Every structure is written in C-alpha cells, then in structure tokens.
Computed example of a mutant assay.
Amino acid sequence: MGTTSGTLCGSQAGCDGNSTCGPDPNTAGVRRCFCNGGLRWDPIQGICAENVTCQNPEGCGGSSKTALIAGLTSGLGAAILLGTIAIHLYKRHKRIKEARERLAREREEILNAGGTRAAKLFTGREIKRATNSFSKDHLLGAGGYGEVYKGILDDGTVVAIKCAKLGNTKGTDQVLNEVRILCQVNHRSLVCLLGCCVELEQPILVYEYIQNGTLLDQLQDFNRGEDDVNLAVYAQRMMDEERLMDIVDPLLKEKATTIELETMKALGFLALGCLEEKRQNRPSMKEVVEEIEYIMSIATTKNVEN
C-alpha cells in the first residue's frame, strides 16, 4: 500500500478512487486513506498523484521525441558535412586532372614543334612497366649521365631507357626542348630518340634499342687487330691531318652544297669534342644542344642570304 494521505475514513467511501481505506499501523483503531500503488500523497494539491521522478520543469513526456529529433538533426548535419567534403574532394580531383591534361598538351606541343618526326611523351607508369620498376635485371649499364635500362613497351617494342641521376638540375622544359631537337636528327648511323618522360623524379630519355653493343664498344674496341684502329682515335687523327671530312658518310656529302659541307664539318668538330677521354673536357648535353642550334641557325641564315 502507498503513502498515507492523512485523511481519516470509516469505509472506502471516505476515500477517492486513488486511495484505499485501511487501518493506521501507528494508531490502533484508526483508519486512514492510503494512496494506491505507484501513487504518492501530494500535500500541496491534497490528492494522490503519480510518483514523478523526472526533474525537467517542462515535463518528461516528450523526452523520447526530443531524443529522436536530436538524433535526426545530428544525422542530417553529419550527412551534409560528408556531402560537402565529398563535393570538395571531387572538384579538387577534377581540377588536378584538368591541370595535368593541359600540362600534357603543352608539353606535347613543345615536343612536336618544328620537327617532321614527333616525339612521344611517355608516362611514368609506362616507363615503370617497361623496366619492371627499374629492375636490376633490366640494367644495361651506367655512365656520367645516369643508368640505361632495357625496356619493353606495351606494344612489344624493345627500347633503351636512359635515366638521369638523382639530383639532375635540368628543368622539364629544357629536357623537352632537347628531345625535340634531337628527334629532328635522323640518320641511319644514329640511334633514334623516341621520346621522354618528365613525370618521375629524374628526366628519362627513350631510345630505340640496338643489340650490337654500346657506343663505347664500337668506339673503343681494343680487341681488334694491331693494324686496326678504334674509331675515336681514327677520327682524332683525321682531324689533326685536316681531313675530317674524309670520315663523313659519302651519302651525306653527295650533292651537298658548300653551306651543308661547312655545317657537317662544324658538327664533326662538335662530335669529336664529345669523344674527349676526360669527362670534364666533354661538353654537357645542354651545351651540345645549344651548339647544334647555333650551327643550324648560321646555316639557315646563309641559305636565306643566298
């Protein structure tokens, strides 16, 4: 039985519907109204009221509804936040992709400008696939410029991939211009430069693959007979005897103009400079390209004047 209301009663008729008439345990022979279970006596209102444990002044009947609203609001806010982040990341990815595509087009324009044979701009992924991520099994050799790897392109073409040393200070545009110029040099005795890659940490040049040994093997084959002389020594001797043009391919000299012969001679002197034994005496690739540009510009000017 609940708390006592303090109201005396002779029978149940003396109590309301929320209380029950019963003997007072503290006073013999006295009957009082006791609040039914779950109810307690409210002396302010003078009735048996529900036993409320909620301390919220506004009541607790809507607590579950409030929690539901709060949960929905939090979930909606989180969804909006995630959506905003996703949109931002998508736009950022799109901007980066568009910038890369634009840069690739600009680089291809540099490579293809002014030449009859277009150079290819290889991606870093293509180069890594071709060399099995620069595996040592693909390494052909190393020199002052860097390392050379044998590679197989996706279409099955075998190539020689020349990888500059780390820390190479050549800028991307400089490498592209060098490739553009070198791709215009076309001769059956020269290794063909196919293109380059400027996506990776160091510049990379891609040449056609020649199976008959390296240039050094051809220039300095000391296993020849005593009466034979390696090509580098022979060229130097002919230059000392002022007979440098005697070692130029006859097909090049045939029907050549005076200006063309002078250009060949100038290029021959430049080539001999590249055969210097000490590396510090040899011109850099940048200097070679600049010299070739200078020689060709003089030849062009003379042709125009004539």
Score class of each variant (00 low, 15 high):
163 C>K: 15
150 K>P: 03
33 C>E: 04
173 D>A: 11
294 Y>M: 13
60 C>D: 04
279 R>D: 11
211 Q>A: 15
196 C>S: 09
288 V>W: 03
200 L>C: 05
286 K>A: 15
256 A>L: 02
177 N>A: 12
72 L>N: 03
75 G>L: 13
42 D>G: 04
59 G>S: 08
36 N>C: 03
191 V>F: 03
38 G>H: 08
230 N>C: 12
242 E>M: 11
194 L>N: 00
229 V>Q: 14
61 G>C: 03
50 E>K: 01
13 A>P: 00
84 T>V: 10
278 K>L: 15
283 P>E: 00
105 R>M: 12
266 A>H: 03
281 N>W: 07
86 A>Y: 04
14 G>I: 01
201 E>A: 10
23 P>C: 06
258 T>C: 10
46 G>A: 14
215 L>P: 07
214 T>L: 01
284 S>L: 06
125 R>S: 13
168 N>M: 03
126 E>R: 05
188 R>I: 11
13 A>K: 07
218 Q>R: 10
158 V>D: 02
254 E>N: 13
128 K>R: 15
291 E>L: 08
106 E>K: 13
40 R>V: 15
173 D>S: 10
65 K>T: 12
115 G>W: 03
270 L>I: 01
61 G>M: 03
42 D>Y: 06
212 N>A: 12
9 C>S: 05
228 D>W: 08
93 H>M: 04
71 G>C: 13
214 T>E: 04
284 S>R: 04
142 A>D: 09
306 N>H: 09
182 L>C: 13
304 V>M: 12
201 E>H: 09
166 L>S: 13
131 T>R: 01
108 E>N: 07
42 D>K: 00
48 C>D: 00
118 A>N: 10
104 A>L: 11
17 G>H: 07
284 S>F: 07
66 T>A: 14
16 D>K: 09
12 Q>C: 09
86 A>G: 10
69 I>F: 12
279 R>G: 13
281 N>G: 13
226 E>C: 00
252 L>Y: 04
17 G>T: 12
113 A>F: 08
290 E>Y: 00
125 R>C: 06
78 A>C: 11
133 S>W: 07
280 Q>C: 14
95 R>D: 07
69 I>D: 01
262 E>G: 10
188 R>P: 04
31 R>M: 13
227 D>A: 08
216 L>N: 15
254 E>W: 10
102 R>V: 12
40 R>K: 14
88 H>I: 06
190 L>S: 04
87 I>F: 06
97 K>N: 06
129 R>T: 06
301 T>M: 09
209 Y>C: 09
